[in-house]
Design a protein around this nucleic acid. Structure first.
Lengths: 300, 300
DNA sequence: CTGAAAGCGCTTACAG
DNA sequence: CTGAAAGCGCTTACAG
């Protein structure tokens, strides 16, 4: 059915090997021969079969991107930047969404490996992720973005979460806040734990009391964020500021704070992390710490 | 390096063909043989090489998903549902983002075909899309989701946009609005043009005047949406209600409406389309027409 | 039920 | 600079 390298070879009066060489810009091809081959290719409308090529080279020009939640704008913005970047290099990106579930990530790791992707970008790992660690140990090409492994050997790209969190907390402190609450993500995530560390450090540096009751921790979910915010607003005295470890949590908190009749920031200040697009919306105006998603993509 | 079907065959004392048959659950394999093979496979930790398999079968178990903007929650929610669904069938999804640019879509079409994906899901086409039409005409497996082609032969799944728009407009009319404005997307998109049609039809059915000055049309972009809303608010008399052809436009409109000091919905009512997650946020509370993204994914 | 063999469409050392 | 040949790891009609 399809036009193969053989057809081109026959038409151009050369061997398939030569066609292949032209195709791959192999150095030593005679200009005349090359021309003949190119002519034959265009006349036949030849398109190389990538499956065959992948197989012969054991390379797919494909990377896997495993994210924890593509509907979180932070990750969809990241995904956009990564696919745009991949396009420049003629790579394609297989999108894998874990919903923050370990079994999904494990599934996708096996799946992608078996598919023969050239590498995997993870935006979904825990600090200790057995299967991902194995991958790194076996020198499988992978890179961790935003969330990283504890394992030193693993290449990662992420913002300085501790510094970012300190920025956020110091901002609140400068505004005069003392009773600052923190809603963290799961502590087995590098982002959450580093930000928590930053929170502690900033508070300590300014000599502020850290109260257990003002520190909440839970998985990333709207419902849990509602619940934790409610808990915070039920403590007495109520905190005057809340730092949420990402924007989605902050958005959920915002709803509860408003629901309870508090004004933001007059009664309770709120600050998030990620700077997702909607944060800038007039009705939201969430203060947040930016992450350079585009820059990251260019470095991956 | 890697363990191949041959290694398994040798270990199990059978031929590679038999191993392959076991692998593919071919009907007629003796139970004993099968057992031996399975045992050998697990002992060796054998994983079939998908590249070889793809090549032999000319099939990749991969589909391409071309969306116009993955950072639009509508599409990221759709992408999530599609990848989840694909996972069930052991398919993977190559994410392609066009930024609403025809050249990007054309690039990805060629790219995906050459890669040998088994099919393409489009969420990015214009009503007349030469290259996509060509694909359909040549019986290339593809399906159109949300946005469709004019071409009858093309399989698509989309909500009843005309009906949805009528729902929106009727809702506004019931609330007593007469000066209803509409911000449409580009008319060469099925979604935009069908919704516009619904707008016209609903207005006519209720005997309301349709004023040219209340109908704006532009590409999907925040800046343009700001601009168009500003234009609407500068007409006199100012419309009492605005129907935006998608939620992102509505969110942008909302900013301008608020900026100008109008209340929603008391001074100006606003309604969107898509029901993206953030619409339900307490600070947004955007009235909107839902689209069944999950249902769609199950039908693709 | 199972094996030997050809084939999927490329690439690439090896000769020349 | 170029061709003949082997090979990438599977699948599958063909015999038996």
């Amino acid at each position: 059915m399809n036009i193969t390298i053989k057809d081109v070879a026959k038409k151009a009066g050369v061997s398939p090997a030569t066609v292949s060489r032209v195709l791959n810009n192999y150095n030593y091809v005679n200009e005349d021969t090359k021309e003949k081959v190119v002519k034959a290719m265009t006349e036949l409308g030849y398109k190389p079969n990538e499956m065959a090529r992948n197989f012969a080279l054991q390379k797919t020009n494909t990377i896997g991107l495993i994210v924890s939640d593509i509907t979180n704008p932070f990750y969809s913005e990241l995904a956009k930047n990564i696919t745009d970047r991949a396009k420049l290099f003629n790579y394609n990106v297989v999108l894998c969404n874990t919903d923050n579930k370990k079994e999904n990530q494990d599934f996708y790791i096996d799946f992608l490996r078996q598919k023969g992707v050239d590498g995997i970008i993870f935006s979904s790992v825990n600090l200790n992720d057995k299967k991902a660690e194995e991958l790194v140990r076996s020198d499988y090409p992978c890179v961790f973005c935003n969330r990283r492994l504890k394992l030193k050997k693993a290449a990662f790209i992420a913002s300085k979460n501790k510094e970012g969190a300190k920025l956020a907390v110091n901002h609140l402190i400068e505004k005069g806040h003392k009773r600052i609450a923190y809603i963290s993500g799961p502590n087995n995530l590098s982002t959450a734990s580093e930000r928590l560390e930053g929170f502690y450090e900033a508070m300590k540096e300014k000599g502020l009391q850290i109260e257990k009751k003002y520190i909440k921790q839970g998985p990333f979910s709207k419902e849990i964020s509602y619940k934790l915010t409610n808990e915070l607003l039920s403590t007495s005295p109520v905190p005057t500021a809340i730092f949420a470890s990402n924007d989605l949590i902050a958005l959920a908190s915002m709803e509860i704070i408003k629901e309870k009749g508090y004004r933001i920031p007059e009664d309770i200040a709120l600050i998030g992390y990620d700077n997702i697009d909607i944060s800038g919306h007039r009705n939201i105006l969430l203060t947040t710490i930016a992450q350079k998603k585009k820059k990251w993509a260019s470095l991956l």
